[in-house]
Each structure stands twice: as structure tokens, then as C-alpha cells.
Design a protein around this nucleic acid. Structure first.
Lengths: 199, 199, 199, 199
DNA sequence: ATCTAAACGAGACGGTACGTCTAGTCTTTTA
DNA sequence: TAAAAGACTAGACGTACCGTCTCGTTTAGAT
């Protein structure tokens, strides 16, 4: 019953990394991005908001984008897991629809857009984004398609990467330009690129 | 013939806007972006490189992104005009192939990626990018598709915006993530979305 | 009768110096100094207020302090002439009392204080102030004392410069520090330094 | 003996104000004023010369004149203390002679002239100069005169402020106009204003 | 029961760029 | 040819963050 008396000031952990501080930083970064945009996302502001010293951030993250990347990995694992079992056409379609929802409506999706943006300005960010987010996720997406193909549930007309790019590309592009994904676009692409030929 | 001997130092224009300065700024911004990345693209650096006072930049552009937007409009009009006459399937396909080349290989294309990126961080940039680049270009792309459809050269399965998003989306997405557009992707999309139903 | 029809817009004088512009500049400088202080006295502000182009000021005055010096010479000749005839003790005393009033209460006196101040920052101003204001005036003050001495009206205990410094010094110092000249100070100095030993 | 090896680069003080930086700023300001005049005394130049970041200056001083005021208080306390014990006529005379030397020959005296000058241009400076320099010093000068009077060493003919103004005024005025204090001036004023009536 | 070691908050520091301001120069146009 | 207009280079202004560096405090684990 360590926190029973609900201390106004949290008990610090002394010798070990302070998990409370870590979470405070991640949430502060997320909140600032959503509430005030990337422009307000400075290390100083994160520290201020998290009630944490700047040095504590620099101790554990090389820069503010690594903080964001941590929140993205955490959030997207929760909000948008890549299906791994019982792959049907409907599951695959649902995944990409979920992806569209994630990047256009979920606040956590803003983090992905912000990191894609930042990657254009900084090659280090580009590398980290690929390594810790895009590539691992792509790998699991390929597996998803492979299983669906084995099952005969889908019959991709193109290679896995081309297929995923064809579906993810318009979604991300529309999100980046602030427009909605046009009605019918995803369904038509699905029909043309993934549906078993026949009838 | 006062300026016949082409002075090494440009003759300033006095009362009127100095065209030489304007071009020096645009080229300096372009060069800096390509050579040293967006991080090195500060107003101070542009001014230094262009041999121009900072104030001259602030007099004519609200911020450095407006400078970039000007270079983008100028360059893309030259490198990637939207076809307006004799629209055939091949012309349309060639336009999108040219677009892919523009954003993945042309230095001027980096400007578009940088502006899409910056638009994620700043809503003013987002608005300006739409208003001065994306929307006008989209309008002409729609006209291109409309003419090709009237001619019977193409038969879009989707509405014009959906069609353009389906083609531009993967191109831009691949450019943003630093990967090549997968072989066959554009051709397959073309075949499926634009080709007359054979016959 | 050049200005007989009092045009709303003054008639410019073509290839001769425009007297209207000259006076507008002097008055604008004076007004700005009195109304908004020396800090607001920029060449741009003077030009704006006078309805004159900056270049017109630079054409005729090396800098804004020369403008002020012109107004000072003009104004102080009018407000505080050095007595030259019928020098009595009372006339001399009245002159220094007038000087005290000039620097502490007359708006035109502020110009002198401002120029003394500026002279500390810029040796060119120091030279100009001496040459065009302090030295000529000192010369006439010496003559005033000399005549009074010849008349037997006053009997300076010190040399003329020392006498003038002893009287002007406290006046200027009090004006510069924003305090009033203490009651009795001038009279006592007068009594001690200028009054015939009597008997 | 942790600092026994006297490091070539100073050890910074971490969390606390860096005394080395403070002194570097004060000396840089003093030096710049003496060497290049008030015109060269910009915050940027002080920072450059002191080897200090501009922000460090703005953190501790509202403006460059406050820096000067600090150097003045520091220097004049050292070069020109107001005598407080054993007040004799000679001590008082020596103090004012010292003051004359300070403002006309000591480089630190230039700071006082510069601040008096700046006070004409900015009322904030005027207030600060009074509050932090002129008034406290005047208070001690009054005490000096009071003690000398009690002792019977001097017998001021005027009130304390008038006496001090009568002596300081010509000194400052001569310093401001770049002329020497005329020979005999101070002695005569002393004789007339402070000397016991003989007898 | 001390002592060591790490992580913490706080915040000063040297820097870089920001966007604004004024100085002083220059050129074109008008009268 | 003077004056109005105003664009230009140059550089200081004061602010915001950057990333680094002590400080002194707090606590866990080793002595």
C-alpha cells in the first residue's frame, strides 16, 4: 500500500530509472503534439509539461523525435495490431480500413504523420522510423498477405510490397494532404488487386 | 546602353523590386535544401547564400516555406506540366510516370516532399500548399482525365479524385519513405483503373 | 508672394532647395524630441512626420544631430540672446537666470541637453556642438563679463571661463539630473564671484 | 586541492550564477566604452568580448545601461569612496578634487558621463542612475558635510545640496564639454562656500 | 547504520536562428 | 535638378530553444 496516502509529490525511485518520469514524458509529448501541434513540441515544453528536468529527457532519448517514436510504437501496437491469425479477405480489408481510420482520425495517428514529415527533414529520423516502425510492420503485413494467399482467401495480383504500397499509399497521401480517402477507392483497389479472379 | 558592359555586381533597381534578388533567393533556397537538407534551410542561411539582406526576404515572403513554395511552383511548372491537349492513355501514363520521377529523382521534387512534411507541422503551410500548388494542379489533372475520357482514350473506373489519389498516393508514399515505386505497380493500376474495358 | 494661395500641397521649388522641406524637418525634429523623447528621434520618424523623403534629410544634414543643432542655434538665438549692451550686474544675473529657465523649462532647452548627452557618445557631435554652439556663445559671454567689468558693474574674482563654468555648471548639472537649481545657489555664487567688493 | 592546477578554461558553476561570467561582462562593457565609445557598446559586442552568450547578459541585466551602472557602482566605490571618518576641510577638498580627477581622467569616470548622457535619452535610465548611484552617493556626501560642520572644520554658507551642486556642477559640466576644470575654480569655491569665516 | 552510486529537479551556460527595427545608400519617377 | 517613394545591404535588437554542464537531493543496494 505504498501510494495509499496519495502523495501530491510522487516518490522517486532513487537509484533506478523512474518509470513515472518516463511515462510522464511520453504522455506530455503526445498531448503537446495533439493540442498545440509539432511546432510547440520542444524538449523544454515536454519537460515543463511532464514536470521533469530537461536532462532527464536527454538522458534517455537522443532527441524529441525518439520520444515520439516511442509513443508511436506503444500506441499503434495497441490501436492497430497487424492481424496474424485467421486471415480472410475481410480481415485484410478491415486492417487497411483501420489503418485509414488511424492516420486520419486517431490522435495517435498524428504521431505517424509527424514522424513521416520529420523524416523528410532529418535522415536520422528517417532511419529510425524505418527501423523501429515501418520495416517491422511491413514485415508483418507481408506475412498477413502471405497467409491470406495460402488460404486462398486473397489472390494478390502484385508482389506483397507493391500491394501494400498501392493500398497504404493513397491512405497516407490523403491523410497528409488533409483530405478524406475518397469513397469507393479502397474497395475498388481491393477488388482489383486482391480478390480471387473468378467468381 | 548603360548596362552593356555587364557589371560584375548587378545594377540595383532602385524604386522597384529587384528581380535579381528575387531569383537569388529562390535559387539559394533550392540549393540549400538539396545540398544540406531542410535543417540547414534557415532564413539567415538563404540570405547569406543569396548575398541578400534578411530583411529583403522578410519583405517579400512571410517565411522560408513561402520561398520554397515559390520555387516549387516555378520548377514544377517547368519540369512537370500537366498535359492539356491531345490526351491519350499514353500521355496520361507518361504524366504520372513523370510525376514519379519528379518526386523521387528530380532535386526540385524534394521541395514538394519538404513542403508536404512542413504542412504536417504548420497548418498555415498546409493551407498555402493546397491553395497554391495541390488544388490548382489537381484541377488540371481532373481536366486531363475528363478530356481523355471524352476522347474514349481512357475509361476511369473511379471518380477523378479517387483515380488521381490512387495513382499519386503510392508514388508520394514511396518517395516519402525513401523507397522506389515497385515495378509494375503503376502499370497494373493503370490497367485496372483507366483502361477501356477492352473489347 | 509665393505661398499666397496657400496650396493644400506645397508647390515644390524644382531645382532650388525647398525651404518648406527644410523647415518641416527642423520642426518635426523639435516636436519629436519634445513629445516622444530622443529615443523616438530617428531619421525615419523625422521624415515621416515632416512628410519628406529620407534622402532629403541625408542630402542636407550629415545626421539627425545636425538637424537638432540647427534647431538649437535657431531657437536659442531667439529665446536666450547673450546681452551685448548696457551690461549691469542685474543684466548678467538675469542672463544666467534665463539660462537656468531655458535648460530646465523651455522645450528648446531639452535640445541642448540632448546634444550634450549625444556628445558623450559621439566625438563628431562633441566637435560640432562646441564649434557651432558652445564656443561662439562662450565668446559672447566672455564679452558680456568683460564689459560689465569695464563698467565697474561687476568684479569677477575668477577668470572669465572659470566664472562662467562656476555659474553654468550647477545649472546644467541640475538640469541633467532632473533636479531644480537649489534656492539661493545662484545668488550666493553671484555675491561671491561677481559682486564688487564694495565697502 | 581540487583547483590547484588552475585550469585554462574556467570551471562553470553549474546551477549557480557564474561569477566569472559576471565579471567578464562588467569588464568587457567598461573596456568597450573606453576603447571604442558608447556607439560600439552593444549587447552583442559585450557578449563577444566577454566570451559570453548574449542570453547570459539578458538573464541578469535588463539592458546594457544596467551593466554600465553596475560597473560604475563597483568602480566608483573603489576609486572614489566618500570619506566617512575624520572629516576635515582638507578631506572634503580632497574628495571633490578626486571627483574631478575621476570624471576627467579615470576611464571609469567615462561611465558616469555616459550614464548621465543616456539618462537624457531614457527616463528609465535616469531613474536607475538616481536610485542606484546619485542618490546614495549624495546621501553620503551630505553626511560628510554634516560631520565636517559639526567638527567646526567647515562652515557651509549654503544648504548641503546647494553646496554639493555648486562644487560638483562645474566639475561635471567641464567633463561633459571636454574642457579642464579651470585652475583656481575649486579652491575659490571652497574658500567662499565652506571655509569658516576666519576670525 | 553507514556509504556509494545512480537518477532526479533545477537551472545557468555558450550557441544559433528567429523576426523586427533603423541606419544610410541607391535608383526611378515626377514636377 | 530637387524631392518623393521606396527597395536595398548591414547589423543590433531581445526572445526561444538547443544540448551540455554542474549543483544538491533522494533513494536502493552494498558494505
Amino acid at each position: 500500500m505504498s501510494a495509499a496516502n496519495s502523495p501530491p509529490r510522487r516518490a522517486r525511485s532513487g537509484n533506478r530509472r523512474d518509470e513515472t518520469a518516463r511515462l510522464a514524458v511520453l504522455h506530455a509529448a503526445d498531448d503537446l503534439l495533439v493540442e498545440h501541434g509539432f511546432g510547440a513540441l520542444t524538449v523544454e515544453a515536454i519537460a515543463r509539461r511532464a514536470g521533469v528536468a530537461k536532462q532527464t529527457i536527454y538522458r534517455w532519448w537522443p532527441s524529441k523525435v525518439e520520444v515520439l517514436l516511442d509513443t508511436l510504437v506503444m500506441d499503434s501496437e495497441k490501436s492497430l495490431p497487424v492481424p496474424a491469425e485467421k486471415i480472410t479477405a475481410e480481415v485484410v480489408r478491415g486492417y487497411f480500413r483501420g489503418f485509414a481510420r488511424f492516420v486520419t482520425r486517431d490522435p495517435a495517428g498524428k504521431v505517424l504523420l509527424a514522424l513521416i514529415a520529420e523524416a523528410q527533414h532529418d535522415s536520422g529520423t528517417a532511419g529510425n522510423l524505418r527501423e523501429h516502425y515501418l520495416d517491422p510492420r511491413r514485415e508483418r503485413e507481408r506475412e498477413m498477405l502471405a497467409r491470406g494467399t495460402e488460404n486462398g482467401e486473397i489472390a494478390p495480383k502484385l508482389g506483397p510490397d507493391a500491394t501494400i504500397d498501392a493500398l497504404s499509399g493513397p491512405i497516407v497521401y490523403c491523410a497528409l494532404t488533409g483530405s478524406a480517402v475518397p469513397r469507393g477507392l479502397l474497395d475498388t483497389l481491393f477488388e482489383d488487386l486482391l480478390r480471387p479472379r473468378s467468381g
